[in-house]
Amino acid sequence: MPADADPEPAPAPAPAKRRRPATRKGRPTLTRELIAEAALEIAGDEGFPAVTMRRLAEELGVTVRALYRYVDERQEVVDLAAALFLSRWEVPPLDPGRWREGLRTYLEHQRALYRRHPRALLVSLDERVSPAGVHPNRLRNPEALLGLLRGAGLGARDALYVHSDLATRMFAFTLLVDHPADRGTAGDADATGALPDGWAAAHPGLDLPRLTEAAGLPAPTPDELFEELARSVLADITARLERASEPG
């Protein structure tokens, strides 16, 4: 190159590959996980019928059209939320040799999950969840409970009855006891109030001596009622084990 020639310009650096920002205006960018989380929060507070694409878009601060870049239809949102709900149902290993402690652990974990998203429990009434929305925990944990009961000595029929009875009790307990207490409406018209305010006054012609007497007693707390539920279940299992061990 001649001494007086201008040096060749250095090649321009390759443009940096653009990365999608982790946040936009202080919010995380939209993901299927965020959609599932928002849907579950709505369902847990208000039930799955409140989960609409428009409502989700409002909660997430996006357009409805943006949601459809991540999910094909509302059913997929329901499936994602149901799977997320069940993914949080974690139960430690259950030892049949310590079945009383194991059953209490199972109940406590179930109660904690249900209290977090109470109205999501009604998904089986409000929606039809596709197999994709059935998280493995929905199969794994009942299998573990049945294994605990069978290992403790119950027959297959008794174990299945206890499992079904337990599911019914926990659903009812969550919706009638824990949920009203957690939202501050306990005693209005739930399982902890014998005679909710105003009910007797609305029917002055009724003679209600037993309910009136019960209404004057201190209402049991949700924790006290839960302890009674656990004791009742344990007593039922114990009675079944004793009957199974009887000769003949």
Rank of each mutant, 00 (worst) to 15 (best):
A12K: 11
A81S: 09
A83Y: 09
P247H: 04
R243G: 02
A167S: 14
R115G: 15
P118I: 02
E41A: 14
R157D: 15
D165E: 12
P196L: 12
V233A: 08
E90A: 07
A82E: 13
L56V: 09
P2L: 15
R55C: 03
R157C: 12
D45A: 14
L148N: 06
G61D: 09
A82D: 08
P136W: 04
L86S: 04
R157Q: 15
A239N: 01
P220H: 11
D126T: 12
E108W: 13
T105H: 08
G205I: 12
F173Y: 08
P247W: 08
G155A: 02
P209S: 01
F85N: 00
R20P: 01
A200C: 06
G26R: 02
A3N: 15
A186P: 01
T52Q: 03
V91E: 07
E101N: 13
L217W: 12
S87K: 03
T185A: 15
D223Q: 15
D188G: 01
S130W: 10
L160K: 10
T168M: 12
S87A: 13
P136L: 07
P136K: 06
R116A: 13
T29A: 13
V51M: 05
A144I: 01
R100A: 08
E41S: 15
V162N: 03
A10V: 15
E37C: 13
R18I: 10
R157A: 15
D188F: 04
P15M: 11
G198D: 07
A112V: 07
I237Q: 05
L56I: 12
